[in-house]
Amino acid sequence: MSKSRPTYSPLYLDKTGKRHLIVSDTAEIPAEALADGVTPDMFDERWTIAGHSKAIPGTERGAVADHEFRSMNHLLIALRRRLGEEKMGFRLYAVGAEGFLWEVRTAAVVVGMGGGEVQLNQVGSQARRVFCNHCRTITEGVTTNIVECAGCGANLFVRDHFSRRLNAFAGFQVDAEEPGDIPEIEEIYR
């Protein structure tokens, strides 16, 4: 396994922190994302993605501990604003698909949060976002070892090389030397 591939572990409540916000890309925070003995109610606030149009969050600090969002972008916009106003002593936790985790992580890095202040744990689909090294298009939801680029149509081999900056795995054309010579396609990232 390449070193650039992130590893994740169950989230624990970092007791050195003073305020704790957990965000999830699902409607319920999955129990398997949390370490033994940790439950969602131990966090001061829980932000989830309900995925329907009835979700109307008010994100004033401390008002309500649970907020539902319509979509990932909906949540991320509120999160960026919130991080911009937060003070030191805050801890952020994210569970969900890898693409979501690194959007959250980037929002945290932008405001100067460091490794110890953010915890990530991947749950659910292992599908990858794949960055085409040739045309720079990102293909979403890739579950196979080789994928046709959504931008230029090249047959991309999906590497284990993960870019934290791009939030995607690197993909390069597998049949550049001999066009059409494509290895067997297998579904391996479910």
Partner: peptide, 10 residues
């Protein structure tokens, strides 16, 4: 003084 410092302060 420390209490009022924004995230990302060193």
């Amino acid at each position: 003084l420390l209490e009022e410092q924004p995230l990302g302060t060193s």
